[in-house]
């Protein structure tokens, strides 16, 4: 095939390959550079690092404000993953299997948050809370982030549910199982991997989110992204690189587990 290519096709292939390689480099290089910088022994940023040290990791772990913010973020993300799963999975069920009037409108509304920038959801929540004399707090952050992340869970669950063979439910009924038993024995086990993926992605998104958090989070117990947002602007030591490397490490650990349990191909969908 490749032997007798027209000149234009050779050029086309080269251009395609070069651009693709550049894009892939662009995608992964920044994260790798950040990880490399985090091992810098000196007090300022340099690439390549002048040596290898874990000094800035020690610095990060010794910083009470930072470790506290990590704990806050972990709790917030767990809560958001829990809320969105509890709300999103049944909603996806109705969206796919339901035959009620106004289904199209309901589906559109369920996916509406994905058209809203995080900032707008954040500000709207801030104003709405203020109207009832609620100040920005991590409870408000959880509620707002759950709005932001809900379409994510619903879409993943919907895609999986739509892919399920409805005849499996009929087979289950034919073999004597009621609706509830069919859901528990047939639907849920097949939904499982998709739900794990949805929960993981929601967790990571909630953990990383800064656009909603800047408007709704507590002034004292700040979550990690907000803490990081201020650090990036006012701190020039490799400490930020160390935190970033840890975040990247956490995300990759989650993704590895997912790849093992769910399969990477499915994550892309």
């Amino acid at each position: 095939m490749t032997k007798n290519l027209a000149p234009i096709d050779r050029i086309g292939r080269v251009v395609l390959g070069v651009v693709a390689a550049f894009s892939l480099l662009l995608l992964v290089a920044p994260s790798l550079i950040v990880v490399a910088i985090s091992f810098e022994p000196r007090g300022f940023i340099a690439f390549p690092p002048s040596g290898f040290s874990l000094r800035w990791y020690e610095h990060v772990f010794a910083n009470r404000q930072l470790t506290d913010s990590v704990v806050v973020s972990l709790w917030v993300s767990l809560a958001v993953a829990g809320i969105t799963l509890a709300l999103g999975v049944p909603a996806a069920f109705a969206s796919v299997r339901g035959t009620f009037a106004g289904k199209a409108a309901a589906n559109a509304f369920l996916l509406a948050p994905q058209m809203m920038p995080g900032m707008v959801i954040g500000i709207a929540s801030l104003f709405f809370g203020a109207y009832f004399a609620f100040r920005a707090s991590n409870a408000m952050l959880i509620l707002a982030l759950s709005v932001f992340c809900l379409p994510f869970v619903i879409r993943i669950a919907m895609a999986r549910l739509a892919g399920l063979d409805p005849r499996l439910d009929e087979a289950s009924a034919n073999l004597g199982a009621g609706k509830l038993e069919t859901f528990v024995r047939v639907t849920l086990p097949q939904l499982g991997p998709a739900l794990v993926a949805a929960a993981a992605f929601t967790f990571i998104e909630a953990f990383d989110n800064v656009t909603v958090a800047l408007f709704t989070s507590d002034v004292r117990g700040r979550p990690l992204p907000v803490e990081l947002y201020y650090l990036v602007q006012y701190d020039s030591t490799p400490a930020i690189a160390a935190i970033s490397a840890l975040e990247i490490g956490l995300s990759f650990a989650i993704m590895l587990v997912l790849a093992r349990t769910v399969g990477l191909e499915r994550l892309g969908r």
């Binding site: 953990f207 990383d208 975040e247 995300s251 990759f252 993704m255 994550l267």
Partner: peptide, 10 residues
């Protein structure tokens, strides 16, 4: 996919 898993801030 990996950039999606690292925050925009990072």
């Amino acid at each position: 996919v990996s950039p999606l898993l690292t925050s925009a801030l990072v």
